[in-house]
């Protein structure tokens, strides 16, 4: 029974038991498990390394053939034509355009929803609405894209013809669809961060005779600002990286314009269309996919790092 050497203990005092404080076995199993778990965790680092390596090598090949200045600042994007041109600005602006229109739709709606949920909604209403928003956040983007293509685009074409120049493709309509996709992100994270503002702050403001609206907009909102900014940046990063909606709704013409009615190609849409075709490794077209992917990766990485820092800030302040 006894690995502790303390059998005599129950028989009363006075008998000195033989005691070993050393481990009865080296517990190799414990160490092996810890090692195995560490390997699981390290896999994430391997993934990142693999992403960086797989983007970097073809990108370097690409930059050996196309000067970096021509790539980053060129205004004509026609990598599969002859003569080819590799100015990334049109598809970069395409990405920014759809993302901006998306943010324009989602930011006011998302923030207002968050203020309502956090400051106005009764616990019962909140308990119903918040899970609904979270479940709706799981709608696949291909479904939202089809909704944009089949329903939104014809509808908007009728009501606001200037929004859809080349039916059914339009940067503005793609933006609205992206907006629908990111509203739950903004609402959910902003709500969390406003609710983590200590209630003492609210009570103090009420004690000074302020109205509910002022407490919400002048006290809670500023106090939760880092979490709110984080939600916006994360949503922006999702909008920039979104592929299916823009593939379906924004079209495939690399136009250097912010006109919401124009059809645009985004960086993700370029990767999506080009990489599905039959292209062989080593060609410049193949390398172009990776160069655009590297640019996209850098943009979203910067946005994500910023958002992570902001989230940490609000967690530190109030938790």
């Amino acid at each position: 029974m006894d690995s502790t050497g303390l059998t005599g203990d129950l028989e009363g005092a006075g008998r000195k038991p033989a005691i070993s404080l050393e481990a009865p076995s080296p517990r190799y199993g414990e160490k092996a498990i810890k090692g195995l778990l560490a390997v699981c965790a390290l896999l994430s680092v391997v993934t990142t390394t693999a992403i960086v390596v797989s983007l970097l090598i073809p990108t370097l090949d690409f930059l050996a053939r196309v000067p970096i200045g021509d790539f980053l600042f060129g205004t004509s994007w026609a990598p599969t034509f002859t003569p080819a041109s590799f100015g990334v600005l049109p598809i970069l602006v395409g990405t920014l355009s759809t993302s901006l229109w998306g943010m324009l739709v989602a930011v006011p709606i998302g923030l207002a929803s968050a203020i309502f949920l956090s400051e106005y909604a009764s616990p019962r209403v909140r308990k119903v609405i918040k899970p609904i928003l979270e479940v709706l956040a799981g709608i696949p983007t291909v479904a939202i894209g089809i909704f944009g293509l089949v329903f939104l685009s014809p509808l908007i074409e009728k009501v606001l013809p200037f929004m859809v120049n080349v039916p059914p493709f339009s940067a503005g309509v793609a933006g609205i669809a992206i907006g629908l996709m990111i509203v739950p992100i903004i609402a959910s994270i902003s709500d969390d961060s406003m609710r983590s503002v200590p209630s003492g702050l609210r009570e103090a403001a009420y004690g000074l005779g302020s109205t509910k609206m002022k407490v919400a907009t002048r006290v809670v909102f500023p106090a939760a600002i880092s979490g709110i900014i984080a939600s916006l940046v994360l949503a922006g990063s999702r909008a920039v990286g979104e592929t299916m909606i823009v593939l379906l709704v924004a079209g495939a013409s690399p136009n250097l314009t912010f006109d919401p009615g124009s059809s645009v190609q985004t960086m993700t849409a370029f990767i999506g269309t080009t990489a599905t075709g039959d292209i062989s490794t080593g060609t410049i077209t193949y390398d172009t996919i990776f160069a655009v992917g590297a640019l996209l990766f850098v943009i979203t990485l910067v946005l994500n790092m910023f958002a992570i820092r902001m989230v940490r800030k609000y967690r530190e302040v109030y938790e």
Binding site: K16, S20, L21, A23
Partner: peptide, 20 residues
């Protein structure tokens, strides 16, 4: 010292200590 043995000795196993 626990029964004359150093509780923080190099070969002491905390799990074993907590059993006792």
């Amino acid at each position: 010292l626990y029964h004359g043995q150093d509780l923080y000795g190099p070969r002491v196993d905390p799990v074993q200590v907590r059993k006792m």
